[in-house]
Design a protein around this nucleic acid. Sequence first.
DNA 1: CTGTTAGCGCATTCAG
DNA 2: CTGAATGCGCTAACAG
Lengths: 332, 332
Amino acid sequence: MQANLTMKKIAKELGVSVSTVSRALQNHPRIGSLTTEKVQKLARELHYQPNSRAINFKNNRSFNVGVVLPYLTEQFFSIALSGIEETLMEKGYSVVVMQSKNDYEREAAAVDSLIRHGVDGILVSMASETYNKSHFNNATHKVPIVFFDRVLKHPRYSAVYGNITKAAFDAMEYLIEKGYSDIALMNGPNSLQATSEREKGYVDALKKYNIPVDIQYVKNLNLTKEDTVLKINELLDLENRPRIILAFHDYIALDAMEVCKQRGLKINQDISFVTFSNLSFCTYLDNPPIATVEQFPGELGSSAAQLLLEAMETPDTYEPREIVIEPKLIIR
Amino acid sequence: MQANLTMKKIAKELGVSVSTVSRALQNHPRIGSLTTEKVQKLARELHYQPNSRAINFKNNRSFNVGVVLPYLTEQFFSIALSGIEETLMEKGYSVVVMQSKNDYEREAAAVDSLIRHGVDGILVSMASETYNKSHFNNATHKVPIVFFDRVLKHPRYSAVYGNITKAAFDAMEYLIEKGYSDIALMNGPNSLQATSEREKGYVDALKKYNIPVDIQYVKNLNLTKEDTVLKINELLDLENRPRIILAFHDYIALDAMEVCKQRGLKINQDISFVTFSNLSFCTYLDNPPIATVEQFPGELGSSAAQLLLEAMETPDTYEPREIVIEPKLIIR
DNA sequence: CTGTTAGCGCATTCAG
DNA sequence: CTGAATGCGCTAACAG
């Protein structure tokens, strides 16, 4: 564990100066080929590794990028992270990851910690409990920030997100055209931008087909299982209970399905689901959601990473902007 | 994006020396409380942030830890990573993550890249295709390495892993006591240590109950879907096809179940499954595996992180060692 | 072609 | 109590 083989030692060993070693190691043209050879040979023999901390320091770059997301254990985010990692790795960057657990304090601490750890840029998918944006403002004075999926829409920031309004509209239109009615919406928390967008798509589609919007059919969830159980029960207790439920994501649908089954309803017969995410395991269900909106989390992540790369590598010409990834309705 | 507010500037501003600023900022006792106050006030107003790259350089520490694992998108690993992140975050470390995609070259490149990025330690869950260990040997000269789950057993390295032999034995014993016979094993790739351990537990249990080991019942898979389909078909083609299948993990079981259904077999009636992982969504299946071995990936990750912390913080007294996490058989 | 020097930001030792 | 000087490892401008 000797991390202290510096150029100085190999310079002394060879009786040359440190700068000669430095130059020889980077194949500087103005160094004699004999010297270069000699230096490189010894460096190899001694397993010389340049001290990255010194280089980071000197260049004021770390080639590290921070990622802050709600939960690593949610497949949506781990897929996004995977896309991020692949994109950045190709360009020689490493990914430093932190979980906010949807908590504002943790998110602020994570952003702060990343800055202190010296990352060159930050990717964020916001915590649902984030009510105050000052931690982003502070951070953006030091490094560029790009949001993905759970974005902060503001001219100062770049953001990559799915067109949720259209996705919701398309899903509704598909269902309505298919002849379904009594469609309820189990939406996300108020704090998420996507929640109002999803509601808009839902309402727009109903309006287009002159179907009255029943306010009782629209529920916002806080994403805990208890709340899901509560809200699905409320929906099932309505005198005209919904035939179809548009669910925030697959896990909400699965939890709701359980309640339905307990109450004696047959899935995809008495009641069906459409979800906003396409988790691989749903194909294994005997009665999966009849349709699902694929949001391409890997693309979201890698597009955000691309934007960040641009922001980091050409900061002078970089202008914050938004990229919209079109989700795709998948009929099962 | 001005990342260049140094102590020098605040020293000049206040007409004191840089060293005074440095000391004031760390509440050095030998600095006048007025000066300290004055310095800290200005630092706060100017949003002074110490340059972490300079500090890393000076202390020869980065408080970054590298994690190399096969796939972020596999829930087992994302849960492990989550455990790692939680444990390290508490101690002020950040996590740099890289995927090996089970490829030796990528794994070696990842380890190398982490070293170059200046991490203080590395956690590894080995790629299944890793045949050469020299990248670990090189790395361990610079920073400590701890393996988790897919471990390299060697006195030089610490490792945290599940007791797979016992888990397999327990699962088998449960099945045998329950009266099941004709139990097949869809195991992992040869390259994984756990594969032979699982086979040992399987064989040991059969021997204990004087049941002959049928070599045709034991299949090693390469974890591609095609191979899974191939091997389950081979098993189903046997004249006495298995009644129970012990599967490497849930996704193998799910893919195998599909084939079974296509061939007209009823799951949990004609054929049942037991798996080596407890993925949350299995509880939503209509016919889930009848039992599963919970391996506590989060614990594996956080225990490995603990060992690494010890190795990094008290390198002089640290001795590599192994921690075994006992898996738990969960009957559904 | 190669050596000397300076400097990145900070902590620390040595002087006052 | 405070300032000046030093050095971490490396690169690069400046001199030969």
